[in-house]
């Protein structure tokens, strides 16, 4: 167990520094109490962080959904967030581009920075933030407009293209990079909703990368797709990481193992363990991580 004391800022609350009490001889999920203070196992900080979350808490009304999470996202890496249902990985992901703002009861405390700027600060414009931190949702949600308009929407509202030719260029490039170009190049004016599920999700990815964000958040992007479509998306994620930092929430551990360089394991609102994907999947340090990885629950 290695803890990066030097890089983590001091976390308020005295209980933070105590060891987690989850006893190794209690296999049940319930054995970890919500109120247990804990310390993430592994080094959550990286040198080349593009985003950094420090002591992030999310409350849905009285429900403390995310508790004291510290996590960095590095440039050009894919970080997988895994954990059982309801562990808060999606909630945490949605904090990273303030999609939680749309939920009225949600309250976020702590600090999340993008390139050193606190994104929850007053000066941070949420429109600007979401242009820089794009998101792909669980269910493909293309606009009920043409394929072209779907991809062109972001560049249009942000004024990224000076003329029609430039916009065409952005749309074509984005579709190519999303691996959809060959399938749709002859029917760009067809509605995006007419595509298959896998194509729709790639269209959504094209729509996201058309804005050229710095970070792409993916919230279980393959959960509604068949294995072939999933494989295509995974290939795509692999290519995209050359240009983007990607945080992906997934329920499939195989997927996490295939696409990510680092993996974070969440459990009941806490970040239990973080480390390189190889280590997490072959030699997890925490009992809960091991139980989840080995399929004892989740």
């Amino acid at each position: 167990m290695e803890v990066a004391k030097t890089k983590a800022p001091i976390i308020p609350g005295s209980g933070q520094q105590e060891e987690i009490k989850a006893a190794s001889n209690e296999p049940s999920l319930r054995s970890v109490e919500i109120n247990l203070t804990y310390k993430t196992v592994g080094d959550f900080a990286v040198d080349q962080a593009i985003m950094a979350a420090r002591d992030v808490n999310v409350f849905y009304g009285d429900n403390h959904a995310i508790q004291h999470v510290n996590l960095d996202i590095a440039r050009n890496e894919v970080i997988a967030l895994i954990g059982p249902s309801g562990c808060g990985k999606s909630t945490f992901l949605r904090c990273l581009n303030r999609m939680n703002d749309t939920i009225e009861s949600a309250r976020v405390t702590g600090e999340i920075t993008l390139d050193g700027e606190d994104i929850y600060q007053r000066q941070m414009d949420v429109v600007m933030l979401r242009a820089r931190v794009g998101i792909v949702f669980q269910k493909p949600n293309p606009f009920p407009k043409s394929i072209y308009d779907n991809v062109a929407y972001g560049p249009r509202i942000h004024g990224l293209a000076r003329d029609r030719a430039a916009l065409d260029d952005i749309v074509h490039t984005s579709l190519r990079r999303a691996g959809l170009w060959d399938e749709v190049k002859d029917r760009l004016e067809m509605p995006g909703t007419g595509l298959s599920g896998g194509q729709q999700q790639r269209l959504c990815i094209a729509r996201t990368i058309a804005v050229s964000p710095e970070v792409i958040l993916m919230d279980e992007p393959c959960s509604a797709l068949d294995p072939i479509a999933t494989a295509r998306i995974e290939d795509l994620i692999d290519e995209l990481k050359q240009n983007y930092a990607i945080a992906i929430v997934t329920h499939s551990m195989q997927q996490a193992a295939r696409v990510s360089q680092r993996t974070a394991y969440f459990h009941l609102g806490k970040l239990i363990e973080i480390g390189t994907t190889d280590v997490i999947f072959t030699n997890p340090s925490h009992k809960l991580t091991e139980d989840y990885i080995t399929g004892r629950f989740g």
Binding site: M99, M128, R130, G134, N141, I157
Partner: peptide
Amino acid sequence: PSIREAALGVGAS
């Protein structure tokens, strides 16, 4: 709501 999320997600006001 997914349409709203999609629009907000690409940075629409």
